[in-house]
Amino acid sequence: MIKILKAKQQLWQTRITSRNHLRQMDKRLLKDIGITQVDALNEFRKPFWRA
């Protein structure tokens, strides 16, 4: 059970970090990875527990 909770916590932390990075990218970088600023903002606004 503890193993599952630790894995879940790590996944959530990864989502938080990734979404924060997306939010900080400029248009050029977002275009390079194939998403728009609106897409990045929508992803950033998701709660960390949502995939």
Rank of each mutant, 00 (worst) to 15 (best):
L41P: 00
R45P: 06
Q10S: 11
L30N: 01
M1R: 07
L29I: 02
Q10D: 08
T36L: 05
Q37H: 07
W49H: 15
K3R: 12
L5N: 15
W12M: 15
L30A: 02
I4S: 14
A40E: 08
D26S: 01
I4T: 14
R23G: 01
I33F: 07
I2P: 03
K46V: 05
Q10G: 01
K6H: 05
L30S: 02
R28W: 04
I4V: 13
M25Q: 04
S18C: 06
N42I: 03
T36N: 06
I2K: 14
I4N: 11
Q37W: 07
R23Y: 05
R28D: 15
K46E: 03
L22P: 09
M25S: 01
Q37P: 03
R23V: 09
H21R: 09
R15V: 03
K27E: 13
K27S: 12
K31T: 13
S18Y: 06
I35G: 01
S18Q: 14
D39V: 00
R45Y: 09
R19G: 12
K8T: 07
L29C: 04
Q24P: 00
K3T: 02
L22W: 02
M25K: 06
Q9W: 00
L29Q: 14
F48D: 09
M1G: 15
L11I: 05
W12F: 13
D26H: 00
G34Q: 07
Q9N: 04
A7L: 10
K6E: 05
S18P: 00
K3S: 11
W49Q: 13
L5T: 10
A7K: 12
T36H: 05
A51L: 09
Q37K: 14
R19K: 11
K6D: 03
L41Y: 07
L11K: 11
F48W: 13
L5G: 08
Q13A: 08
R15H: 07
M1H: 13
D39T: 06
L11E: 12
M1N: 12
Q13I: 07
P47W: 09
K6W: 06
K31N: 15
W12G: 01
A7N: 09
R23S: 11
I33R: 06
I16L: 10
N42C: 06
K31I: 01
Q24W: 11
T14S: 10
K6A: 02
P47F: 09
L11H: 04
K31V: 01
I16W: 00
I16Y: 05
W49E: 15
K31Q: 14
I2L: 15
L41H: 08
D32K: 15
D32Q: 14
I4Y: 03
R15L: 03
T14F: 06
R19W: 04
Q10W: 00
R28L: 10
Q10M: 05
I35N: 01
F44V: 00
Q10H: 08
P47V: 02
K8L: 12
L11G: 03
I16V: 14
T17P: 04
T36K: 02
I4A: 13
I2C: 11
R28F: 10
F44E: 04
K8Y: 05
F48S: 12
A40K: 03
L30K: 01
D26I: 02
T17N: 15
A7F: 00
Q13F: 01
A7C: 02
I35C: 00
A40W: 11
W49C: 13
M1F: 12
K27Q: 05
Q13V: 06
E43S: 10
I4Q: 11
F44A: 04
K46P: 08
V38I: 12
V38L: 12
L11N: 06
K27G: 04
T17V: 12
R15A: 01
